Amino acid sequence: MDLTQSAARAASDKKAEDIVALDVSAQTPIADVFLLATGSNERQVSSIAEAIEEALLATGVKAIRREGLREGRWALMDFNDLIVHVMHQEDRAYYSLERLWKDCPIVALPADL
């Protein structure tokens, strides 16, 4: 299972909502994929982010940068080719990253997420 799939599965296991992966490789050199997930409150955002980090660490991949885990509003984790955004519902609606990256193709995720 690739990195994006593993991260999406870990988010889903913690009841993340609106899990979307965008292929940003043609638009930016900083990553190949942005994975977006939503938590309903600060505690859940932190829990989702921690679960993703643990799942990817189990595959031998460590985040090179992480921000916002303590605040629980917008956790950002950089795994080099994959950047994960776990956002509170209100922040996700406000920043609307899908709209910002609307020209990017959606990466297929398992249907059971």
Rank of each mutant, 00 (worst) to 15 (best):
F34N: 03
S40E: 12
C104E: 00
V61E: 15
D13K: 13
E50P: 07
R43D: 00
E50A: 10
L97R: 00
A11I: 06
I83K: 01
S47P: 02
K102T: 12
H85T: 04
R9E: 15
D18I: 08
I48P: 04
T28S: 15
L3F: 00
I83T: 06
T4S: 03
I19T: 04
V107E: 12
K14Y: 00
A37R: 03
I30D: 06
R65N: 08
R43E: 01
V107I: 13
W101V: 07
S12P: 07
R43F: 04
R65H: 15
A108R: 14
L3V: 12
I106L: 15
P110D: 06
E17W: 03
S46N: 02
Q89K: 14
A8K: 02
D13I: 09
V33W: 05
L57M: 13
Q27G: 10
E98W: 04
P105R: 01
A108Y: 06
S96T: 04
I83S: 03
W74V: 06
A10L: 09
M87H: 02
K14S: 06
V45G: 13
V33K: 05
G72W: 08
R92M: 05
N41R: 05
Q44N: 07
D18H: 05
D112I: 03
A111L: 13
E42G: 12
A11P: 13
I48A: 08
S12V: 04
H85G: 06
A108V: 14
L35H: 01
P110M: 03
F79K: 11
E53A: 11
M77D: 01
D112R: 04
A49H: 12
L109N: 12
I64H: 12
P105C: 07
G60Y: 02
S47I: 07
S6Y: 08
A51F: 09
R9H: 11
A21Y: 08
V107G: 10
K102H: 14
E90H: 11
R65F: 06
A63S: 15
R99P: 08
S96W: 04
H85Y: 00
A7Q: 09
Y95S: 02
K62Y: 04
D81I: 05
G68E: 06
V84L: 12
W101M: 05
L56P: 01
L109T: 07
K62Q: 12
M77E: 13
A7H: 09
Q27Y: 13
T59V: 11
L22E: 03
M77Q: 15
L22K: 00
W101K: 03
L82K: 12
V24C: 10
I106S: 14
L109G: 05
Q27W: 09
G72K: 09
I19F: 01
A7G: 04
I106N: 05
I52Y: 07
T38N: 13
A51Q: 08
R65V: 01
D78L: 00
L69N: 02
G72R: 10
L97Y: 00
D13E: 15
W101Y: 10
T28F: 01
F34T: 10
Y95N: 10
T28I: 14
R66I: 13
P29S: 02
S12D: 02
I106P: 06
L113G: 00
S12Y: 09
V33G: 08
P110W: 00
E71G: 07
K14C: 02
I83N: 06
D112L: 06
A63W: 00
A93H: 09
D78C: 04
L69Q: 14
